[in-house]
Design a binder for these strands. Structure first.
Length: 444
DNA sequence: AAATCGGGGAT
DNA sequence: ATCCCAGATTT
């Protein structure tokens, strides 16, 4: 009892955050000003074209909108509007309704999502679509029933319910936290669960029962365009008169609007190191059939289900010899490529390093290009693949440039392309051919 | 409560 | 470099 009191979150004046609420005077002002502003300033976004409101009575059309809102909201989790637009359009073109999506494969979905990040979201979307369609096809229409679907949490449930079905429920995302923290000058840690709970309570007070979907979008739109994290445009803000952070900043020089919400320091990333080998197979005789080897990552964990160049996670910073040894072992165990077999190394060269930064990992990749000449060609790998669970495929140059790839793999491929470009610029064709045939070919 | 899970744009 | 984005799930 005592302990929980001590930890209780407070607002700027040291008061109890649970005592903060919107008065009956400010609520209608905020609703009216915000909706008026939103009607004038809302961005024209693809998922808004279908979801304008309450006047469509046909169930089918309404559920079509709900599906579009669902897809957009999941894509928008921790992801900027600008990034989502193209992915959303491609997705809706391929799977216009939940019934189309329910028939898709996880492989198709993964490729469509490639580059967008947080790949669990895509898997949950597919699983949710199958669940709904196979369970009778009725789209869940309330926030509480929506939350039963994997990948739909508090925010997304509120967003779909209010935008597609006009349920009077709030949403709280990063924008809403910021807007409300400033409106009420809440200096408590915004990551603290008690603070989050109370911001939900405040958002619930505000949401306009006449236009819940538009109101929720208005708050988020304000947070994204006016009440921004670093440089809010208070002079153009429609609810600046209700903003306590702005008011405090005017009466106290040591206070700024951007002090709200409180900044939370994040943990440093773990440091990982990997050896990446871009394996290019050159078939005997036909130079045009040069192909790259891609392997599929496990369907759980980091970058689940995504394709990548063969790579090995290293113990730490490793020297060239150790990295090559690790790659050799990987290729032998996964594909039976080893010294006894009749393959030739046409080229093995270090391309460079690339540091890829995730939210919680800082991965330094050592990239090499490994051109192999196989007498049996690609079929060689086919025969040796039975002993492993590794899923792999070959992709030619053209396909690689259009394929859905994660950002890191795309970057590595660009390094390879650049390397090859430089090499062919600096070496005449004749020299290249001679060097390959006379000097660089070694036994594995 | 803390860790996991991407990627990119703005500063 | 750092922040943070229309977050959710797992541990």
């Amino acid at each position: 009892m005592q302990a929980s009191r001590v930890r209780k979150q407070t607002d700027a004046r040291g008061g109890d955050i649970e005592d903060i609420s919107f008065s009956n005077k400010e609520i209608p002002k905020i609703r009216t000003s915000l909706l008026e502003w939103y009607d004038e300033n809302r961005r024209d976004l693809p998922w808004r074209r279908l979801s304008s409101g309450q006047d469509d009575v046909h169930v089918e059309h309404r559920e079509r909108k709900a599906y579009a809102v669902w897809v957009s909201e999941v894509m928008l989790q921790q992801t900027r509007v600008q990034t989502v637009v193209d992915y959303f359009n491609r997705w809706m073109e391929k799977w216009p309704t939940i019934h189309h999506l329910a028939r898709a494969s996880i492989e198709e979905v993964n490729e469509m999502w490639a580059g967008l990040g947080y790949y669990r979201r895509a898997r949950f979307l597919l699983e949710g679509a199958k669940m709904i369609v196979e369970g009778g096809g009725e789209f869940p229409k309330t926030a509480s029933s929506l939350k039963m679907v994997k990948g739909i949490g508090n925010y997304t449930a509120g967003a779909i319910a209010s935008i597609a079905f006009e349920e009077t429920v709030p949403v709280v995302d990063g924008n809403v936290v910021r807007v409300i923290a400033r409106l009420k000058a809440i200096s408590a840690n915004p990551k603290n669960s008690a603070t989050v709970k109370n911001i939900w309570k405040l958002a619930r007070q505000l949401v306009d029962p006449k236009r819940p979907g538009d109101f929720n979008q208005a708050v988020m739109e304000l947070g994204a365009t006016v009440c921004s994290p670093a440089a809010p445009s208070c002079s153009t803000c429609p609810i600046s008169h209700q903003c306590q952070a702005l008011s405090l900043s005017r009466s106290n020089e040591s206070i700024q609007v951007t002090d709200y919400p409180m900044k939370v320091t994040k943990a440093k990333q773990r440091r990982d190191y990997s050896a990446v080998s871009v394996v290019e197979i050159v078939e005997e005789g036909s130079q045009s059939d040069s192909r790259y080897l891609l392997v599929k990552r496990p369907d759980q964990g980091l970058l689940a289900g995504q394709w990548e160049f063969p790579s090995v996670l290293l113990d730490g910073e490793a020297d060239l010899a150790s990295r090559r040894k690790a790659i050799d072992i990987f290729l032998k165990q996964s594909f039976g490529l080893d010294k006894e077999k009749s393959c030739k190394v046409v080229l093995r060269e270090e391309i460079g390093e690339y540091v890829h930064v995730f939210t919680h990992i800082r991965l330094k990749m050592h990239v090499e290009l490994l051109i192999l000449h196989l007498k049996g060609g690609i079929n060689f790998l086919q025969r040796n693949q039975e002993s492993t669970t590794m899923t792999w495929k070959f992709v030619d140059n053209k396909a690689l440039s259009t394929l859905g790839l994660t950002s890191g793999v795309r970057k590595v491929y660009n390094m390879i392309e650049e390397f090859k470009q430089n090499r062919s610029d600096s070496l005449p064709m004749k020299t290249r051919k001679n060097r390959r045939e006379n000097n660089l070919i070694k036994r594995c």
